[in-house]
Write a protein that binds this DNA or RNA. Structure first.
Lengths: 239, 239
DNA sequence: CGCAGTGTTGAAGCATATCAACTTGGGTGG
DNA sequence: CCACCCAAGTTGATATGCTTCAACACTGCG
């Protein structure tokens, strides 16, 4: 059940059978969420952290005028609120963007891991810090890339992250989000997402139909996006 | 010498004398950087992390077309690259925006802390995770706030963060960055930063002259910015 | 005194938002 | 089984905010 997490962490460092055991023991209480349902709400003080087993979720904030900005997209194998373990209070909400199967790690148990398992602790730390690296890349994309490059970049990122958890087959992945959701992630209007998407389509680099994105030309797509996967830190290292 | 760091962490949790001692022991090798000098360069694999003792620094990335985006601003008491401890490789550079006094914590020593001092480890983890919270707030500001609100928000954030390390006096703080640097942080053109700034000035909420920003009307400024300091997690909690 | 960096201003053009209408397809109730 | 409905996607027209370019002002410094 926690295989996606093992794939995720296991892509960055070796996890001993012993550590795997400790992780399995820490992750409990499965639960299902429907699309649009909030997994966690801003202001809450959760005493457990949420691991996505399947489906898509987003962290977001809504401003006074009702505008929503998504600050992160999450897929199977991601902890959506591990940072709440040191932070204590949620400064944003997390919503399911599809039906989502999740499981929980109690903060008491995570705390116990920090007392007894330094290496595992560093890997959990790593996972929050990769979230940070992705945030930075989004800032760069929002501030200085063309909108076409930004959208292309997002697709590249999802492609790589979903590959890690074996959710890409034949250059395709399931992607049930609406253009409105993508607009909230990119900080654009829906209309403009639509028009930008058409540019990528007419370049023959991607298709997006039937809730499925297919990369037709990875090389050209990464070139449009100026995509450099370094920030995902997908390399095995002793950490 | 590491007082700013103690103020920074000490604003979030109690640090025992013992732990303070351990921190002091881990932070070594002071060094000075001149304005525009890089503290760390993208691609490097540093074996120590950099703590700012005084001055301003920025994390940034430069795209192929030469455009620069700043992803974070750092002040005294901030670790600019603690995340490189779990990450190993730098995915961006860090530049001094003023003369900067820094000191280093060797990764070997940080690693030792993770093996022997779980609470201190959680506090270091916390500090990287607050960086992440700030990143998210920047994403929200870039995507969904007006440019005037974005600039106001940045000023609010700096005001609060500098207050923590006692760098605000009489509602004023030293701020030696050019409008071009602020433009790279906001993802705007210099011209537009200038014009946006004038709006804030004509609202009589801030002045910015002689490398000094003064907040004339905090309440109105936070209202323009829709500033909510929750994301800075400035509360004492057992972590 | 002159020069370079920074800030300021105005004009013109482009990119993105907003508004409004229309299309498409899947799901549902009569 | 069909009619309708609703959500999502698409399209075009208009409005606006931001960029770019170019010129000029100010200041500190060699």
């Amino acid at each position: 059940m926690i295989e996606p997490l093992l794939l995720n962490l296991g892509a960055r460092d070796v996890i001993s059978p012993d550590e795997e055991q400790a992780l399995r023991a820490a992750i409990v209480r499965q639960r299902k969420f429907a699309t649009e349902e909030d997994l966690v709400v801003e202001g809450e003080r959760p005493n457990s952290s949420t691991l996505i087993l399947s489906g898509f979720a987003a962290r977001y904030r809504v401003l006074e005028d009702g505008k929503r900005q998504i600050t992160a997209l999450h897929v199977a194998g991601d902890f959506v609120d591990l940072h709440a373990f040191p932070l204590k209070t949620m400064d944003h909400s997390v919503v399911a963007l599809s039906t989502c199967q999740v499981a929980y790690a109690d903060h008491a148990d995570i705390r116990a891991l920090t007392e007894t398992r330094p290496h595992l602790t560093r890997l959990l730390w790593l996972s929050t810090v990769i979230d940070g690296a992705i945030h930075r890349e989004w800032i760069v994309a929002m501030g200085r890339r063309s909108k076409k490059a930004h959208l292309a970049h997002l697709i590249c990122e999802l492609y790589m992250r979903l590959s890690v958890v074996r959710l890409v087959t034949d250059q395709s992945f399931y992607f049930p989000l609406s253009q409105a959701v993508v607009a909230d992630a990119l900080g654009l209007s829906v209309v403009h997402v639509n028009k930008t998407l058409q540019k990528l389509r007419s370049d023959n680099v991607v298709t997006w139909t039937d809730r499925t994105i297919t990369v037709l030309n990875w090389e050209k797509l990464t070139e449009i996006a100026q995509f450099d996967p370094t920030y995902l830190h997908l390399s095995m290292e002793p950490r």
